[in-house]
Design a protein around this nucleic acid. Structure first.
Length: 599
RNA sequence: GCGCUCGUAGCUCAGCUGGAUAGAGCACCAGACUUCGAAUCUGGGGGUCGGGAGUUCGAAUCUCUCCGAGCGCGCCA
């Protein structure tokens, strides 16, 4: 059973609020003030103490008091707290708090007790969240461009799960549009090829990739020459479904190589049911509903500006009043050939999610879909009556480099770098970590050479090395503590008996504080939908750990292992265990391995 | 033309949803290995947070306006 660990910052925030309530009871301050804007956070400058709160500045106006004066009053209450060592008022009214060492020691004890569960939170209140990511077209293998969205979505889903949400990971299969018909025609050529026809070069407009050859072979095996005699309208649905199934199998394999998983693969075609306008056509039903609600009309759109389009033809069409919900222009739902636009299906899809009980929706898209956000958000508002919220996370382009030189790709030759090639060359861990070591909406350089370097330049390695180094301490510590368990659960329990109060070096104290930041960081990252924050935190934690290690060289008394002092050693091992535990659980959240050694 | 995203050290990027003197890595300079892993660490220089105005106790962060980059702009997905 998952143990939820308390967040020490939240704990102190409660103390601050209690102090304010007490002051109100004393008549020093108005009662019932809004305390929601009060925060307790680590100060940028550590000389200010362990934590700072803006309580006095936030409340001053409503309380009708000067910030510093109010700060002094709050400080007075806080000084009585047994966990708090020192309270200062500084600057415009900050209240700086220094906690007793016992508070931080207690937090380490929590880490040791909770283990991998340290950092779990109930922030999400078990609310369902639907995260949709990848959703690559089932027309070929995944290429490197899909990589970032896949890793981002997967890590975000992990993060939300740890933060207490009930997460569903979803993949939307675009199996209903024109390009799956192109796929079918391309596969049909390969089918003929497999039967011995000389098909010559693949015509312009069809998919040339070799990956369709197995589809052709499978079709030849299953149908013999039977399909050749039949008109396209007959064979196309058959070939299409077979090709889509095989492409999806390939894509699932690619995702597995990256350790990316989904709970639901949702077919776009399934929304239409047995056909356009059929009773089980969810798109039609969605449009009907919207029409009844007055969100749909027949009308004309102004031609698009800026980008001249030869094919533009002014015509009457079925439009969704997206402008009523914050979009810039109303959006068409039907194509001129009578089929649905992609947008129409997408509305039905999001409505389907809403009907399955999701109020929190997250879509992860590539940067080229940025212009699509407003209309889908508008649609979600319309179909949910404003009850559902859609956050769209855009992942920016990844620039591939090799030793600083751009990797050339030509699209027309189908000469793209596949996801599989990247994973095979640099490894899953490196791909995953690097894709997350950047904010999602910032462009990213991915250098094949750099990400494999074993040096400080390479954050993947640096963090993993921190973990491995910690583990090596346990191996070496057997000389001083011969009965130290090698099993991490048993070891954590054993180390709870260590005299932790002896961790009084400033470097150790600083590491303890860094560890205690983790639960708060997980919550903030989850709330902001920003898994990269975890990656940066891990880098900082590893850095501080490496630094403490090296202090032991100039000052042998600071080493983790002290030959003639098993108790001191135990206390330090407990700290190392804390670091190792948090590194492992943070890396796990990112889907990256935490190796015990890297030799 | 309009919309979205972005602009932070020479380079690559963080900056905890408005907090105090804006940080890290690379690069550059100077140092630390009879060691629990030097695959690491310590110190140093380096900034008009694109420009300007506004909001307030307080702005890299919010608003407006310019400048610059990327993406998008019915019947592709």
């Amino acid at each position: 059973m998952a143990v939820e660990s308390p967040n020490i910052f939240a704990l102190v925030l409660d103390k601050v609020r209690a102090a304010n309530t007490a002051l109100a009871a004393d008549g020093v301050m108005t009662a019932g003030l809004d305390q929601s804007r009060i925060v307790v956070e680590p100060p940028r400058d550590p000389t200010h103490g362990d934590m700072a709160t803006n309580a006095a500045m936030v409340l001053a106006k409503d309380a009708g008091r000067k910030p510093r004066e109010l700060a002094e009053a709050i400080a007075g209450k806080l000084r009585a707290d047994p966990l708090i060592e020192k309270v200062d008022v500084a600057g415009p009214g900050f209240i700086n708090l220094t906690l007793k060492p016992a508070a931080w020691i207690g937090e380490l004890r929590t880490v040791l007790t909770a283990g991998a569960d340290y950092g779990r939170s109930s922030l999400g209140q078990a609310e369902p969240v639907n995260v949709e990511y990848v959703s690559a077209n089932p027309t070929g293998p995944m290429h490197v461009g899909h990589c970032r969205g896949a890793v981002f979505g997967d890590a975000l889903a992990n993060l939300l799960a740890v933060a207490g949400y009930k997460v569903t990971r979803e993949y939307y299969i675009n199996d209903a549009g024109a390009q799956v018909d192109v796929l079918a025609r391309s596969a049909f050529l390969r089918y003929r090829e497999a039967l011995g026809d000389n098909i010559g070069p693949i015509p312009e407009g069809l998919y040339p990739g070799d990956y369709l050859k197995p589809v052709g072979e499978a079709l030849a095996k299953e149908h013999g020459r039977a399909l050749l005699q039949r008109p396209e309208s007959d064979w196309l649905p058959i070939v299409r479904q077979r090709a889509i199934d095989m492409m999806m199998a390939m894509i699932r394999g690619d995702l597995a190589a990256l350790n990316v998983r989904h709970d639901v693969f949702f077919s776009e075609r399934s929304l239409i049911g047995s056909g356009i306008g059929a009773p089980d056509d969810q798109v039609a039903r969605t449009i009907d509903e919207l029409r009844q609600a007055g969100h749909i009309y027949e009308g004309r759109l102004p031609p698009p500006k800026g980008a001249p389009d030869d094919d533009w033809e002014d015509r009457q069409q079925t439009l969704f009043r997206a402008t009523d919900f914050g979009d810039d222009v109303d959006r068409p739902l039907m194509k001129s050939d009578g089929t649905y636009t992609y947008f129409a299906s997408d509305i039905a899809y999001h409505r389907n999610k809403f009907e399955r009980g999701f109020r929190n929706l997250i879509d992860v898209w590539g940067a080229d879909h940025g212009g699509y956000i407003k209309r889908v958000q508008a649609a979600v508002k319309a179909i949910s009556g404003g009850k559902a919220e859609l956050d769209v996370k855009i992942v920016q382009l990844v620039k591939l480099l090799r030793a600083g030189e751009p990797v050339k790709m030509s699209k027309r030759a189908g000469d793209f770098v596949t996801l599989r090639e990247v994973v095979d060359e640099v490894g899953r861990d490196a791909v995953r970590f690097m894709m997350l070591y950047r904010k999602n909406d910032a462009a990213l350089d991915f250098d094949f050479v750099k990400v494999q370097e074993q040096s400080r330049d390479n954050p993947v390695f640096y963090v993993q090395y921190g973990h491995a180094r910690g583990c090596s301490v346990f191996r070496n510590a057997l000389e001083v503590v011969p009965d130290l368990p090698s099993d991490s659960n048993a070891r954590r329990e054993r180390l709870l008996d260590a005299p932790l109060e002896r961790l009084d070096d400033t470097g150790e104290a600083s590491l303890l504080r860094r560890l205690a930041l983790y639960p708060r960081l997980v919550e903030a990252a989850a709330a902001a939908h920003e898994p990269h924050r975890v990656a940066f935190y891990l880098y900082e934690l590893a850095s501080e750990f490496h630094a403490q290690w090296n202090r032991g060289k100039d000052a042998p008394h600071l080493r983790f292992i002290i030959q003639n002092d098993p108790l001191m050693t135990m206390a330090r091992l407990a700290l190392v265990q804390g670091v190792v535990t948090v590194l492992a659980s943070g890396l796990g959240l990112l889907g990256v391995e935490a190796p015990e050694e890297m030799r």
